[in-house]
Each structure stands twice: as C-alpha cells, then as structure tokens.
Design a protein around this nucleic acid. Structure first.
Lengths: 341, 341
DNA sequence: CTGTTAGCGCTTTCAA
DNA sequence: TTGAAAGCGCTAACAG
C-alpha cells in the first residue's frame, strides 16, 4: 500500500531547498519566513509529485496520530451502534481525525487486547462506548490519556455522553396527558433488574422517573404496570394480552421501548382493537420499526448520531468531566389520539 | 495518551544488552541465537517495565502497520452494516490487525478524503464495502495495494465477497415447492431498476434468477408478480392488498426482502387472513423483524458477519481475484405450511 | 553469539 | 532567510 510515495526529501530536492524549508512551507509555519518564490516552488513540487506526508513518520516526532480509538462492547447486535459510529465519524472527519474501531464483546480478554492494540498505535484519545446506557468502570490502561464515555458513566470523573431519558419520560407522559388521557394509562416494561442495577441500565430508571414526575404533577396515577423480564416483542405481546383481560381497559399504553410496543401492537391487532382509536401507544427509542408499523408509532428517539458526534467533540475540543445529556426528540406519529368516548 | 511508555532502549539498558539484542529476543527471531540467559533478562526487563512496542515507530521501518482500512459508503442507514463490521473485526483481531473505519456517504469528496486519510496512515490494505450488493468502480488511488471488495464487484479484477443470492432464490422457491405449493405462488418486489442496473443492485436480479430456475425445473409458473418502487413495508402492504383483490388467492408469497414481507403481514392481518394456514410467506435478508413477527417469518439470511470475515481473510491470507460467494442460510420459521385444502 | 551503525520520513532546535 | 543535524522508536545490515 502506498508504495513509491514521494517523500518530503523528494519535494525539497525538486524545489531546490532543504527538507526543513519544505516542511515549514507545507505546514504553513508562521515564524520563519521563506520567500514567496520559495513557497511557490515547494507547492509546485509537492503538487507535481503528488506528495502526501507519511503520518506514521510525523507522529513519531509529534506524538500525535490524528487517530481516535472507538472501543465499544458490542457493535453488531444493536441496531443503533451504526448511528453512534456515524456521528463519531462525521465529527472526526471535520477535525481531520480518523477512527480506529474495536469491539470487546463484553469479554475481558478481548477488551484487554483491544485496548493494548489501540494504545500501541499511539491513538490521541479513546472513546469508550457502551451499547446499552449504563454505568461501568473503565479499564485503568486507558486513563493515561484523554477518554470520553459514550452512552455510559463511571465512578471515575470523566466526560461522558448520555441520552436524556428522564426528560424523554416526561415528554412521553405529557404527550398523553395533553391529549386528555388521565386515569387509564398503563405502563409496559417495568423491570427490577434494569431499574435497580445501573451497571445493567440507566435508561429504565430514568425513563420511569420522568414518567412518574409528569404524572405526579398532573395528579394522575397509572392504571397498571406490567413487568417484563426482557424488552422484546414477545414480552410486550404477553403484557398487552394480560392488560386486556382486566376489567378496565386502558386508554393509552406507554411502552419502555419500541420492541415492546411492537409486541403490544400484535396483541391489539389479534384482539381486534385499533390504534389509536381504541388505545393510544407511545414508547422510546425510535427503532426503524416504529415508522414501519401501522399506524406509525409515536416514540422518543435515541439521539445516537448526535451522541457519537458529541463524544468526539468532547474528546478533541475539550469538555468537563461530567455527563453531557443529549435530548431525545419526540416523534409524533399516528399512534396517538384522545381517549375514546 | 501512552505517555511515559518504556522504549526498547529502556528494556535493553535494563537487561544490559543492546537494542538489537532486545529487539531480536522480543520478536523471537530464529537466525541469531542469544544465550538462554540473555533471553531471560530481556523478557524480565520488558515485563517489569511493562514494555510494549511503539507500532508507529516499527511501521516506519517495516512498512507494515497491522492496520486495515474499512472504507464503506454508508455505515448507519442499514441495519446490516454492523454485522459486516463485526465479522471483519473478529477476523482482523485473530490476525493481530486492527480496523480503521471510514464512511464516504456515497459522496465523491468524502470518499476522496477518506481514502487519502487511510493511505496517509500507511494501512496494509483496503476493504472497500458497499452496503447494498452492487457493481461499482473502485477509486484508482487504492489500487496501489491490496484491495478486497465487500458486498460488491467491479470491472477491475479484484477479490470480492458477495452473498449467494441466486442460490438463496432457489432455496426459497424450493422450500415452497417441497411443501406442495404449485400454481398459486405470488412474488412481491419485482423492480426494474434494481433488476436491470447492477450498479444499483445485484441482489434483485440474482434472487429472481434463482427463483425462476427452481420454478422452471418444477414446471411451475408464478401466479402473479407485483412490482414495487421500493422494498419497504408500505410497498409490500400495497402489493399484498392488490393480490387479495384478484379472483384467485395465492397459497404462498415470496417477498424480495423482509421489509416487504412485514408490509404483507400487515395487509394479511387486516384482511383477516392467517399466516401460514391461509397463506405461507417467505423472503430474504433475515432482518431482526423476521424473528419478531408473529408467526416468525421464514427467510434466507444475509450472511453479513461471514462476509466481513471473509473479506479480511482474502485481504490478509491472499485470495483469487474473483467473487467469493457466501451461502445464505435458510431460516425456517412458522410462516410456512402446505397449501390449504 | 553479540553489538554497532544506519536509516525509515518527519519535525525541530540551533547555527549560519 | 535558509540549512544542517539531531532524534522520535524501531529493525536490518553488517561487522566484530
């Protein structure tokens, strides 16, 4: 790769100047002034030879690689990883940086390996990303340089980027309250593990807190709360079926994520109920299925692209050692209506 | 980052040997034999100092960076990008390599930039990936070194990795034939643009070819073929509604991808028809929704993880300059049954 | 068997 | 204004 690339020495020779001079011209150094004509000659030579600096060589001197490590637990399983990465890539490109991406698969050995691999390559900083919003402890090895936590926080005080799930919880509840839903709102997706263990999830607790705040302010309480062992369609389906056996039918459902909502839709369809005429549904994440469902599912979007971008900004432009919350926009779709009757 | 790292010189000094000796011991060179005791001293010193070689410095001499560029058009929009990357990451790690990932967003300027960025960093090779299977022309700049096309082919003869869509087409059709479906099979998702322009898609044509081969062999012809301008749920929905207005109802539906099938499910549900008792459905991709649907959607999986892996293998272990087809496994789920009656 | 020397391509004193 | 020389950390010739 990149055989036969012209070197700085080639450019200097062609321009009839020293490497030093060529280097200074090409790097636009202010201090020492070379004649305008020398500038010309250097630029012309570089142009003609198609010169591009060898960044590995440069970094040996400058100790800067213009390369950031993006270390994450899992890139594939979640649909959202791509957006996190894309946002980071965009912001990195704008700053002339590049991303070295590794995946630990939640495995300590792989993690160790991944971290050594990127540190050996002298990256300028590390973005340590979790695919589920949670608290974690960062491997000490990366603390030798700039670190930003993405979709995670840690006991060490470090800059971090998180979605604002609590505010999202309030938006979701308020969206229903504004439509006139009061005492027939049910919640699907309570989960002790997620709510109680910040190392499993921060989202569950924050969303719940937001929902309850908004409801309390309106002096409304939930009609029912369904616990689910996982946030998958089948659990949403089962929960919804359960709700429909109760004497009082809910006028609106809040699901803790879109996959649960998808399951709830299936149960409603089978029961011959229509969204939103019979029951409104709203949830969290803005998974692609939310837009594909009929009717479209109202939800609050995980701002993954923004978050990836923010992480790079904090890393490169500097940022305070505390969580930076990114708003989750409410996507209003047809699954919302005033309560029937 | 990585300040205060011990250097080879530190190790050599501590071991009381020359840098050369230390280098040879640490790299396990066969040629020159140092005393067993010298080995011990070097290893001990390296261990104690937590020595790790500076790969940027090494690459300056060896012209190898143990870094591969993964240049793709779009990482985010498609759900599958993650799997492609994950497969590549795994295979790279097994070979002690790391991935520099960039995204061009299909924009020529970004692409130019991305390619220069990775070449400047002296990558050992480039994986040039497309998110939709298609034919493309690779930017000449990367032809100076090893290149593998991922999910794409090109007029230049280069090693490439593609899913075996044609064989998948045959599996899909055969799965229905085996169940006894004959002259009431309908196809949703024909699309002239995708079928006729290899730079848009190679999958559509190959899938169609496979389907038709299998049907021809069984002397069966399609009951109906629906054209769709895009392969999205809404188009599958519309197509399915159209099919249900015809005099003869199909016994089985082949959808060109899972999103179309999702739309078809919705139309079937609204029409009060049951999958698979009334109509069987099968499709392509194995999008996560395929498993979430009720009943589970039978489909042929895009082997993206395998493909990413294969690309790295071809790049690093060497491979012939021709397409390498990766099989698409059939996922049998509950959406298949013998024709009713 | 071991060590010295010379770069890889670049930036950066420092001297002319 | 310009250039020579040193050196980043490593490996590869080549002598000892």
């Amino acid at each position: 790769m990149g055989r036969n690339r012209a070197t700085l020495a080639d450019v200097a020779r062609k321009a009839g100047l020293s490497k030093t001079a060529a280097s200074m011209v090409l790097n636009g150094r202010e201090g020492t002034r070379l004649s305008a004509e020398a500038h010309q000659r250097v630029f012309a030579a570089a142009e003609e030879l198609g010169y591009r600096p060898n960044l590995a060589a440069r970094s040996l001197r400058t100790r800067k690689t213009a390369t950031i490590a993006f270390v994450s637990d899992i890139v594939a399983t979640t649909r959202f990883a791509g957006d996190l990465i894309r946002g980071a890539l965009d912001a990195a490109r704008e700053r002339d940086h590049v991303l070295l991406i590794t995946e630990t698969q939640g495995d300590a050995t792989f993690e160790q390996y991944a971290i050594e691999a990127v540190l050996d390559r002298q990256v300028d900083g590390v973005i340590y990303a979790a695919m589920a919003t949670r608290r974690l402890t960062v491997p000490p090895a990366i603390l030798g340089g700039p670190v930003v936590l993405l979709n995670a926080t840690s006991p060490d005080s470090l800059p971090s980027v998180l979605p604002d799930d609590e505010r999202a919880g309030r938006s979701v509840a308020n969206a229903l309250l504004e439509l006139g839903h009061r005492d027939a709102i049910a919640l699907i997706g309570r989960n002790r593990l997620k709510e109680d263990d910040p190392e499993v999830s921060l989202a569950a607790r924050a969303r719940l807190r937001g929902i309850q705040q908004a409801l309390n302010e309106a002096e409304v309480s939930l009609l029912a709360e369904c616990f689910c062992t996982e946030w998958l369609p089948e659990h949403g389906y089962a929960a919804m079926r359960g709700l429909l056996t109760r004497p009082k039918r809910p006028s609106a459902i809040i699901c803790m994520n879109d996959r649960l909502a998808f399951g709830a839709y299936q149960a409603l369809g089978e029961a011959g109920l229509t969204v939103p005429e019979d029951i409104s549904v709203i949830s969290f994440d803005d998974d692609p299925i939310a837009a594909w469902l009929r009717p479209g599912l109202a939800t609050t979007a995980l701002p993954h692209e923004q978050m990836g971008r923010r992480a790079v900004e904090l890393l490169l432009d500097g940022g305070v050692a505390e969580p930076s919350l990114v708003p989750m926009p409410l996507r209003r779709r047809r699954s919302l209506a005033p309560p029937a009757g």
